[in-house]
Computed example of a mutant assay.
Amino acid sequence: MEYRVSGYIYQNGRFINGTIEIDEGVVKTISHRVDGNADLKGIVIPKPHNAHVHLLDYIVKDMTEERDLIKLVAPPDGIKHKMLSKASREDLKYALNMAEELAKKLHIGIITEFRELGLLGVSLGKLSKNFRVLSRPRNIEEAREIIRISDGLNLSSISDVDYSFAEEISKIARSHGKMFAIHVSERIREDIKAILDLEPTFVVHMTVATREDIKEVAAEGIPVVVCPRSNAYFGLFPNVEAMIESGVRILLGTDNHMINSLNIFEEAEFLFKASKAFGQEVKAIEVVKMLFRDFNKDLSVEEGIKAEELLVIEDLRGIPELVVLN
């Protein structure tokens, strides 16, 4: 089936006026002319990337109103970790199945997950090819085992483990050509040089990092995933303006699934609106770019891309609706 979609097209970090032609489920051509007779009109975008989430946290949803970061999520004694350690395999699978269902409804293209519980956690499986699982090992032996069946490894922070352990975990992940990621300066400032020496694929939060820390991360080309709704829940907010000024590659994540929904569009909206309240000037297009990034490439509407990887925001009687192409 051949059809055309015309309007604004997200390409290479900006919106252009144009028309895409789809045939047999693939974008065949992209023109820079608007077609008034197109089959569908709207804003054509890639499906977004939720670049940081803890999916197993869903089992803690509505179980507590704790808003102290350490008491709620810090390992090993935070409320969530105690509940995860006691959870049945059925409850854990339920959390993942619920996430898969929600991700489909929200039209998320890629999800990068920090998975707790070591071997047990990764044995729960990957929900689809678009879900990446970075497992959290509890010891070196477990790390060597789970790296074979994970997309990479994660650690809570260098404040929560011996640094020599973090070094070894990073080395194991990188020796297998897989990702290594870590939370950084979420509640206390951490030694950025020590973190960069671990050669992470990306880091998460940088909420209380200094401007100099941010510049060092930018200089090393390490992407940063910010999670503003989660940070705000704990009374914090990342300096996104400084990150943009320093040239940091910023992505968005929804973080703890018991606090926030997987809706990454809501994350973007919150960041744009709340940044002003925190005295930051963040342009809308910069936030949009964060939605459509992977760690090493930008997501873009291009010829040859499968239509199922795209969305159209169609304005029907003033009510924007997402349309999935096929």
Rank of each mutant, 00 (worst) to 15 (best):
I22S: 01
I22L: 00
V27E: 13
K28C: 04
T29A: 11
V34L: 14
D39C: 11
L40A: 06
L40M: 14
V44Q: 03
V44K: 03
I45H: 14
H49Q: 04
A51T: 03
A51E: 10
H52Y: 02
V53K: 09
L55A: 11
L56V: 02
T64Q: 03
E66H: 09
D68W: 13
I70P: 02
K71N: 11
K71D: 14
L72D: 12
L72P: 06
P75H: 04
P76F: 11
D77G: 14
G78R: 00
I79E: 15
K80V: 14
K80P: 03
H81T: 03
K82G: 01
S85W: 00
S85H: 04
K86Y: 03
K86L: 13
R89I: 08
R89L: 10
D91W: 02
L92F: 09
Y94M: 07
L96V: 07
A99Y: 13
E100V: 00
E101F: 06
K104A: 02
K105R: 03
L106K: 11
E113R: 04
E113F: 07
F114L: 05
E116P: 11
E116W: 06
G118S: 10
L119R: 10
L120I: 11
L120E: 15
K126V: 05
N130F: 01
R132N: 02
L134F: 13
R138Y: 15
I140D: 00
I140S: 00
E141L: 12
E142P: 14
A143N: 02
A143V: 02
E145A: 09
E145D: 13
I146N: 11
I149Y: 09
I149F: 10
S150V: 03
S150N: 12
S150C: 09
G152W: 12
L153R: 02
N154M: 13
S156D: 15
I158Y: 03
I158S: 04
